[in-house]
Every structure is written in structure tokens, then in C-alpha cells.
Simulated scan of single mutants.
Amino acid sequence: MGRSRPGDGPSTPATVALDRAGVPYVRHAYAHDPAASSYGLEAAAALGVQPARVFKTLLVDTGRGLAVGIVAVDGQLDLKAMAAALSVKSVTMAQRADAERSSGYVLGGISPVGQRRSLPTVLDDTAYGFPTIYVSGGRRGFDIELSPVDLETQTRATRARIGRPS
């Protein structure tokens, strides 16, 4: 996987951050269908990738602030496991407006990379079963492919089992 070129897709805070850090990644743009019921499953189908390799970025409220959970699109975030990984009593899903304001991205296009604020982040350990994974590139219809280790490094993520089957 070589360094991505700006012409390969849009420039977003995520791609700017990865380019600045010299992290190798691949840009994948696809035609987003506004009627899609699941942004992540839409991405997997459009890119021809198994859903277990495509990860969604979810923001949670810990009661003391927001945090980021990154799980496969074919599963769900286990809120109890997320709370345990963050060493807090409980978490709830963040309100849409809070997630968008904090991250700087719109729902369905929230990237774990290049967010406005650095938040505690947990990456589901199933990501490490693949050489590369796909996450939102910061826009609907745009994913970036990178190694889970590089994603962990760039987001200063903790590795934990936070996903569960749907």
C-alpha cells in the first residue's frame, strides 16, 4: 500500500492528518446513496469488501465527556464493554449534534482520524485480524484503507473487544 495521492479522492481533515504524519493509506470514493439504511454496509457493498473489514466510528458519552468506539459495520458497539475499556461506570451513545460538533464531521462520515478534538478512542480488537481495514475518510461516500496498527497510532487508541454481533 503506497502513499495516497490527493487526486484519488477528496481532501478531508482525515487525509490531511494522515498525509502530514506520513501514514500509508488508500483512498476509496464511491457513489453514496442518500437512501442507504446503513452507511457502513453501503460502503462494504460499494467497495466489494467483506463487512467485517469495514469499521464504523461511533461517539459515546461517558458522563465526563465524549469518547470514540471503532467497530465493524456488521456488528454493534457493546456499551458495557466500551465503558469497561474506558474505565468508567457506563456510557451512552452521544447525541448526533454533540458527535458532529466534537468531531467536525457529519453523521455517516465521521472519521476516527482528523477529528477536531482528540478523544479517548477504543478500536475493536477484531480489526487486528486484517492487514488493512476501512474507515470513513470524513465524508459520506469516501473511505480510507489503512493498517489497524497505523489507525491505533494515529488515534492513540486502546485495543479492546468492544463489538458484538448484530
Rank of each mutant, 00 (worst) to 15 (best):
M1T: 14
M1W: 11
R3S: 11
P6I: 00
G7S: 11
D8F: 09
D8T: 11
G9N: 02
G9C: 01
P10A: 12
P10K: 05
S11H: 06
S11P: 00
T12A: 00
T12M: 01
T12P: 00
P13N: 04
P13Y: 05
L18S: 01
D19G: 12
R20W: 08
A21C: 11
A21M: 07
G22R: 04
V23C: 06
V23Y: 03
V23N: 04
V23T: 15
V26T: 15
R27K: 12
H28G: 05
H28M: 06
Y30L: 03
Y30M: 03
A31F: 11
H32P: 02
A35I: 10
A35S: 12
A36V: 12
S37T: 15
L41Y: 06
L41I: 08
E42S: 07
A43T: 05
A44P: 00
A45Q: 07
A45E: 10
A46W: 06
G48K: 08
Q50D: 13
A52Y: 01
A52G: 07
R53C: 03
R53L: 09
T57S: 10
L58A: 02
L59P: 00
T62G: 00
R64Y: 12
G65H: 04
V68C: 04
V68G: 01
I70E: 05
V71K: 05
A72T: 09
A72I: 04
V73W: 01
V73Y: 02
V73M: 03
D74W: 02
Q76H: 14
L79A: 13
K80Y: 10
K80N: 13
K80P: 07
A81N: 11
M82L: 09
A83I: 09
A85R: 11
A85T: 14
L86K: 08
L86M: 10
K89F: 11
K89I: 14
S90N: 13
M93P: 01
A94D: 00
Q95A: 15
A97K: 14
D98Q: 07
D98C: 04
A99Q: 03
R101W: 03
R101N: 08
S102V: 11
S103N: 03
V106E: 11
L107A: 14
G108S: 10
G108Q: 06
G108R: 07
G109T: 06
G109E: 00
S111R: 09
V113Q: 05
V113R: 03
Q115S: 11
Q115H: 10
R116V: 12
R116E: 09
P120H: 09
L123S: 08
A127Y: 02
A127Q: 05
A127L: 06
Y128D: 05
Y128G: 04
Y128I: 08
G129I: 12
G129L: 12
F130P: 05
F130I: 12
P131C: 08
T132Y: 10
Y134G: 00
V135Y: 09
S136L: 08
R139M: 13
G141H: 08
I144N: 01
I144W: 05
L146C: 09
P148Q: 05
V149F: 15
D150M: 12
D150V: 12
L151I: 13
L151R: 06
L151Y: 08
E152P: 08
T153N: 13
Q154M: 15
Q154W: 10
T158R: 14
A160I: 13
R161T: 14
I162V: 15
G163A: 13
R164G: 09
P165G: 11
